[in-house]
Design a protein around this nucleic acid. Structure first.
Lengths: 361, 361
DNA sequence: TCCGATTTGTTCGTATGTATG
DNA sequence: GCATACATACGAACAAATCGG
């Protein structure tokens, strides 16, 4: 049967298909349509209502009714809810939960579903996860890259993501060669600030411990060296300890023991708070007073930095904020693909001075 | 915003999910719904209209409005990979990551995808998440119930899960009335062991701090009382402090201050390590020596218990194992639906003695 | 087969709320 | 602050389909 609202609906649809209304353009208002078709407002609303349900139009209160463009009609075909993949290296007890919390809170609010993957810092695992994500057509990816200090072995998979128009954002680190959208800390400056803080307090014999299989550690080490250079202090190469994830709970501690046994150091720059707590433990057993005998700088401003009796001087990490803003940016790219200004956001590190550092003895 | 038609819509949806309306059964007519909800027909029609669009109902002119049989729509969901939802109360920095890690490692190995949700301890949020899970036909759910000490407000949604044959497993706590498959700690015994440990070391003036909006806290408090009874020690009611999630970072600390100001206590039983660290902090500022002046027992054996200078005596929590085994059990139910031996697993708590407890002064 | 009661479908009118520019 | 746009809500009337008797 040909009802009035169905006639109005068909006439509007024709005008869209004829190109009379362009994508995202405002169509005539309800009251205009009332006059044009000589029907009541309710009838017009029913017509528009069905077109909205079918994905031809969308309404915005106060602004008007607009033509839905093709890109969003694509979703209709899939019909699955929007889903985002978050890929981390480790599901650790450390700062990861804060980042996830930030991202999840924004994404769930926006009606996205969050799927969680972890690579265990294994590139092969990362590869198989990326494969899955491409195959299942996720709408976006937030990824903490695996071993970001090295060349990206899964380059082709990232290119594939781009080809399939699945936007991705890297957090904490990134692969240089990809030049991706990334939310990271200025790690070099962070390492610099950590070190300069000690130098300014007259420390000269400073040890630095850095995990160098990801970009963060390499950059922080760079900052460590720069700070020394700026203040014209020679670095004893034995004071730089680098290690990889696999040995993170053993090697740095062993190296610290060797250092303490054989050399005099007055300050330690730690890759992160987790390591700082480990070191603090060793210092406690040796009955070395922190900070009067030896100073300790952490990184990340995690809850660990306030759990200890000697609260840690450390570098702020915008954990929650970083997760939230990465999610926000990802959603904005998904929902407005035309404005592809994928940029990198670098958070400026800030020193938080607590009780684990003082002037050199 | 809460509009009338949305309220009517929700009420109808609830009745569907509660199983009050069966599949393909006629729901109340528009005029009945008008009377029931005291709204106009227009409002009822808007509510029904949205539910029709979302696939919950279908209308037949002259006959009535009927419940859409979701089972017959199943074909759609076949192609998607198997996916599991993990619902937590908070994505916290605390023991949650360990549980997730355990579950994720097993599930990803088995080819399942993990989606993450958090309720923020809000039953309404829990409800909308469960609704999503039912609608998207997840293959299984691991859920940490919200406010498990209280009556489950979303009972009908859990029944609906069962009806739709979506198996679920509860962790950490459970709703009594559901008698669900659950992986929990014997919290009562845990509280008992915490307390008895102090009693056996001659403590008589013991304060207990318990978060009582989830089942765990209530049970631990029960154990606290039982231990006192067993050893025929009177409990000063002022020594029992209960609090809820909302005030967890303020109230217990305030109460501790009051206690320390006015009473002599020699031992503190803490709901968990997180709280223990908070208390330890206060004791430090008062220069009260732990354990020589006052003893402190935590719960969960989290990394916090070893980050502090006075390593905490605490109760083991099988975090990783619990997550792993819950996932294992869920997968087994999914893949062998016939052997529906949904049972509860209670982990026996074990005391880990470190340095925060000693004999009463 | 038809009637009448019931139920949903269409259409009008009116009023007020709320967001946008 | 104002006009404009969509959102919610009330009331009324008639049309069309269904179903039991």
């Amino acid at each position: 049967m040909q009802t009035k609202y169905r006639m109005v609906k068909d006439r509007i649809k024709e005008r869209i298909l004829a190109g009379e209304y362009q994508a995202n353009q405002r169509i005539d208002s309800e009251s205009q349509l009332m006059k044009q078709h000589e029907v009541s407002r309710h009838t017009v609303r029913m017509a528009i209502g069905e077109l909205v349900n079918e994905g031809w139009l969308y309404r915005e209160q106060g602004a008007g009714t607009f033509v839905q463009d093709k890109v969003s009609q694509k979703e209709e075909a899939v019909h699955t809810p929007k889903s985002i993949a978050i890929i981390t290296t480790f599901i650790s007890d450390y700062i990861f939960p804060s980042i996830i919390r930030g991202a999840e809170s924004y994404l769930s609010e926006k009606g996205y579903q969050v799927s969680l993957f972890s690579t265990n810092n294994d590139s092969e695992k990362e590869k198989s996860i990326l494969e899955k994500i491409i195959q299942q057509r996720f709408d976006g990816v937030i990824i903490e890259p695996t071993k970001s200090a090295y060349t990206c072995p899964n380059l082709s998979y990232y290119f594939q993501l781009e080809k399939q128009q699945i936007p991705y954002i890297m957090i904490n680190g990134y692969y240089e060669e990809l030049e991706p959208a990334a939310f990271v800390i200025n790690d070099e400056k962070g390492g610099f600030i950590q070190t300069e803080h000690l130098i300014e307090r007259n420390h000269r014999e400073i040890a630095g411990f850095f995990k160098t299989d990801d970009r963060q550690g390499v950059q922080r080490l760079k900052g460590f060296i720069k700070a020394h250079r700026k203040h014209s202090i020679d670095i004893n190469p034995e004071h730089i300890i680098t290690y990889t994830s696999e040995v993170k709970s053993t090697k740095p501690l062993e190296e610290l023991k060797k250092l303490l046994d054989h050399r005099l150091i007055t300050g330690i720059v730690c890759y992160n708070d987790e390591l700082a707590v480990l070191m603090l433990n060793e210092l406690r057993t040796r009955k070395m007073a922190v900070p009067s005998q030896i100073s300790l700088v952490g990184f990340d401003n995690s809850f660990l930095s306030e759990a200890t009796e000697v609260k840690l001087t450390t570098i702020e990490h915008p954990k929650n904020e970083l997760g939230y803003e990465a999610a926000e940016s990802l959603v904005s790219i998904i929902e407005n693909p035309e404005q592809t200004s994928l940029e990198m956001k670098q958070y400026e590190p800030k020193l938080i001075i607590r009780k684990s550092t003082s002037y050199a003895p």
